[in-house]
């Protein structure tokens, strides 16, 4: 599982793990029913204390994103995967928009100005051959 941890930006490590797994589930990089790495493996891979992974997995389980099977590992939830995924996708986009709005406010753009820029950029991209919107992975 490709997770990157950054200590420099002030986001707690367990939250970075939660966010990245949520993103992977939402974007179907992790399929429903797929097993995610055991705590020890992920801790060794990321070089973080195992208790952080425990905390992240606990939070993911509370949110219904993963399900622990006693003595048999942790899996991405089957049930409700699609409504969850759509809700999750909306949540991620909303976060992006929030950040964009904050930035716009800082630079003295109104919401309408931003919308204008948004439309124009979309049009420019559409003119290119393949309008694939590459979405940066969220931490």
């Amino acid at each position: 599982m490709d997770i990157t941890i950054t200590v420099a930006d002030g986001v707690p490590i367990y939250r970075q793990i939660v966010n990245q797994i949520r993103y992977m589930v939402a974007s179907r990089l992790l399929e429903p029913g797929e097993e995610i790495p055991p705590i020890r493996t992920l801790a060794l891979q990321l070089k973080v204390t195992p208790n952080t992974i425990v905390k992240a997995y606990d939070e993911l389980e509370t949110a219904g994103i993963v399900r622990k099977r006693r003595g048999a590992g942790t899996y991405v939830s089957e049930e409700g995967a699609s409504p969850l995924a759509s809700r999750e996708r909306r949540r991620i986009i909303e976060q992006r928009v929030d950040a964009l709005l904050a930035e716009a406010h800082q630079l003295d753009f109104t919401a309408d100005d931003v919308l204008g820029v948004f439309r124009r950029r979309q049009a420019e991209m559409g003119r290119k051959a393949n309008p694939k919107l590459s979405m940066e992975k969220e931490r």
């Binding site: 200590v7 020890r40 801790a43 060794l44 990321l46 204390t49 208790n51």
Partner: peptide, 27 residues
């Protein structure tokens, strides 16, 4: 360190000057 804690719930105390390491590794 990770194996010591993850495998059997043992305890680790470590001192370090590498604060990023401490931040990742300590509870």
């Amino acid at each position: 360190i990770i194996r010591t804690v993850a495998d059997d719930g043992r305890t680790v105390i470590f001192s370090s000057h590498l604060l990023e390491e401490v931040e990742r590794m300590s509870d």
